[in-house]
Amino acid sequence: MKIKVGFGYDVHKLGEGEELWIGGIKVEHTKGSIGHSDGDVLIHAICDALLGAANMRDIGFHFPDTDPNLKGIDSKILLSKTMLLLREAGYEVGNIDSTIALERPKLKPHIPKMQEVLARVMAIDQEDIAIKATTTEKLGFVGTQQGIAAYATVLIQKNK
């Protein structure tokens, strides 16, 4: 069995009146992510981690923000397509460990639903997806509520 690890990071600017999509669910808030797609930083970080672990470049290579067909796309579709690429190369997900950095709103009550949605989209066990949330103690662009960031580490395996 071949085991690989990948790391992903994404950041989006927050804007008034935009929708806030995180982990495949809409979170009610006065600000939301600004992006070419729906701006789901968690899914984007997970996609980057998966693609990196499999040495398949990154999310921007496969789903460029210059593609007008991807404007406003649901990031769950990007994750589903990433999983197809991974499985076509013979890989399966072992587990995901992720962290979302956002000052407000508090995400703890939303994490179980995020895990449920991501597990369904990826066709993996919910227990294999860890999601943590943190603030930056009012420091930096996250702390001043100008943006949101997400980090993801993944383990993938290939049976030889």
Rank of each mutant, 00 (worst) to 15 (best):
Val5Thr: 12
Gly6Ala: 06
Phe7Asn: 08
Phe7Glu: 09
Gly8Arg: 03
Gly8Ile: 13
Gly8Phe: 03
Tyr9Leu: 13
Lys13Leu: 12
Gly15Lys: 13
Gly15Pro: 01
Glu18Tyr: 13
Glu18Ile: 01
Glu19Trp: 00
Leu20Lys: 05
Leu20Met: 14
Gly23Thr: 09
Lys26Met: 11
Lys26Arg: 15
Glu28Ser: 14
Glu28Ile: 11
Thr30Ile: 13
Gly32Phe: 01
Gly35Glu: 04
Asp38Val: 01
Gly39Ile: 10
Gly39Asp: 11
Asp40Pro: 00
Val41Ala: 11
His44Ser: 12
Ala49Lys: 01
Ala49Thr: 01
Ala49Arg: 02
Leu50Gly: 05
Leu50Ser: 08
Gly52Thr: 07
Gly52Asn: 14
Ala54Cys: 14
Met56Pro: 02
Arg57Thr: 11
Phe61Lys: 12
Phe61Gln: 07
His62Met: 03
Phe63Tyr: 15
Pro64His: 06
Pro64Thr: 03
Leu70Pro: 09
Ile73Ser: 09
Asp74Leu: 07
Asp74Ala: 05
Lys76Asp: 03
Ile77Pro: 03
Leu79Met: 12
Lys81Gln: 13
Thr82Arg: 02
Met83Glu: 06
Met83Thr: 04
Leu84Ser: 10
Leu84Ala: 04
Leu84Gln: 10
Leu85Phe: 12
Leu85Tyr: 12
Leu86Gly: 10
Leu86Gln: 09
Glu88Asn: 15
Glu88Cys: 00
Ala89Lys: 15
Gly90Asp: 10
Tyr91Pro: 05
Val93Cys: 04
Gly94Asn: 06
Asn95Phe: 15
Asp97Gly: 06
Asp97Ile: 12
Ser98Arg: 01
Ala101Cys: 09
Lys106Arg: 11
Lys106Ala: 05
Pro112Trp: 04
Pro112Met: 07
Lys113Arg: 12
Glu116Trp: 04
Glu116Tyr: 06
Leu118Gln: 03
Leu118Lys: 01
Ala119Ile: 03
Arg120Trp: 04
Arg120Asn: 12
Met122Arg: 02
Met122Ala: 11
Met122Gly: 04
Ala123Phe: 05
Ile124His: 01
Asp125Ile: 02
Asp125Ala: 13
Glu127Asp: 09
Glu127Pro: 05
Asp128Asn: 15
Asp128Thr: 12
Ala130Ser: 14
Ala130Asp: 08
Ala130Gly: 08
Ile131Phe: 02
Ile131Asp: 07
Lys132Gln: 09
Lys132Asn: 10
Lys132Gly: 10
Ala133Gly: 12
Ala133Met: 02
Thr136Val: 06
Leu139Thr: 08
Gly140Leu: 11
Val142Tyr: 04
Gln146Val: 02
Ile156Tyr: 11
Lys158Glu: 13
Lys160Trp: 03
